[in-house]
């Protein structure tokens, strides 16, 4: 299957070395610190001491915030890897027909993904403000005179509202899939049309199977992006009300930079990595990734 490795071994190595160096520069030391210190009591301004599994025990036995964070993180990964990716792929399949609006939609859809998450958080915070925010103003205009829902801080709506700040905005998935769709030979679609297949049928039976790898990649990227979701939540709810919208990155941030407890934060960080590994494993299994289409 693969091209001859031994013949090109020098090139293969030469092409890998820069990536390996960059990886080591960025992550090797960080990973060692992360894993190592998760077994220590490391509080800012104090001596570091080895405590074995105590951090982990503390997290999993009596830390409500942590358990809630894990739960929310897992739910958000699930939603992102399924609903979010589905929305993105659907838009891509519609745009792939290149009807008059396709370029426009592709650009506009990308806007929320272009904006830095800090700026986007700030925008949503103002947009959703119960008092002068646009959303409630529209609803008031539509007739509900005294409408003043506090979307972000009300227990009933906060989780949903926060989720909606990223769930529908799948433009990255869309452009990835669009690029891949363009690579499918036109002749395949032509012959299907000649055979009388409908567009829906073509999408379901030809496009989607051929997109398997890229959809899997999208699911991994989208799912794992939930392990880094910090700014948006920090700018809007800060994990509240209570711990309703807390996730692991928020938990880690608060423990490290607010409570000064780097040991506990890094134990949570290790947990986060493990959750991520399981996520990647499940998704790559589900999509049988890594096999060429041809």
């Amino acid at each position: 299957m693969a091209l001859n490795t031994t013949k090109n071994i020098k090139w293969v190595i030469a092409f890998l070395v820069p990536t390996i160096l960059l990886f080591l520069f960025m992550y090797a030391f960080s990973l060692i610190i992360l894993f190592g210190s998760s077994f220590t009591d490391w509080t800012l301004g104090m001596k570091v001491s080895f405590t074995g599994l105590r951090n982990y025990l503390e997290l999993f036995t009596d830390n409500e915030d942590f358990l809630k964070s894990v739960f929310n993180t897992v739910v958000w990964i699930g939603l992102q890897a399924t609903v979010h990716v589905t929305i993105g792929v659907t838009v891509a399949l519609i745009l792939a027909r290149r009807e008059f609006y396709w370029k426009f939609v592709r650009t506009v859809y990308m806007i929320p993904n272009i904006i830095s998450s800090a700026a986007l958080g700030m925008m949503f915070l103002c947009f959703l403000n119960p008092d002068f925010g646009a959303l409630n103003s529209i609803i008031r205009l539509a007739g509900q005179k005294d409408f003043s829902q506090n979307w972000l801080m009300d227990y009933k709506t906060s989780f949903f509202t926060v989720t909606m700040m990223w769930l529908p905005f799948a433009a990255v998935v869309t452009i990835l899939v669009l690029a891949e769709l363009a690579a499918i030979p036109e002749s395949i679609f032509e012959s299907a049309r000649v055979d009388g297949a409908t567009e829906l049928g073509i999408n379901l039976h030809i496009s989607l199977p051929m997109l398997r790898n890229i959809i899997g990649t999208c699911a991994i990227l989208a799912g794992t992006s939930m392990l880094q979701k910090l700014d948006m939540i920090l700018m809007t709810t800060g994990g509240g009300p209570g711990n309703r919208t807390m996730n692991l990155p928020i938990f880690i941030y608060q423990n490290a930079l607010k409570d000064n407890n780097f040991g506990l934060a890094n134990a949570a960080g290790v947990t986060l990595i493990l959750i991520g590994i399981v996520t990647v494993w499940i998704i790559s299994r589900a999509f049988r990734m890594g096999h060429s289409n041809t």
Partner: peptide, 14 residues
Amino acid sequence: SMALLIPGAALLLP
């Protein structure tokens, strides 16, 4: 892949 999963707050100091 693991690099994708390391929390940013944990990377800051190292």
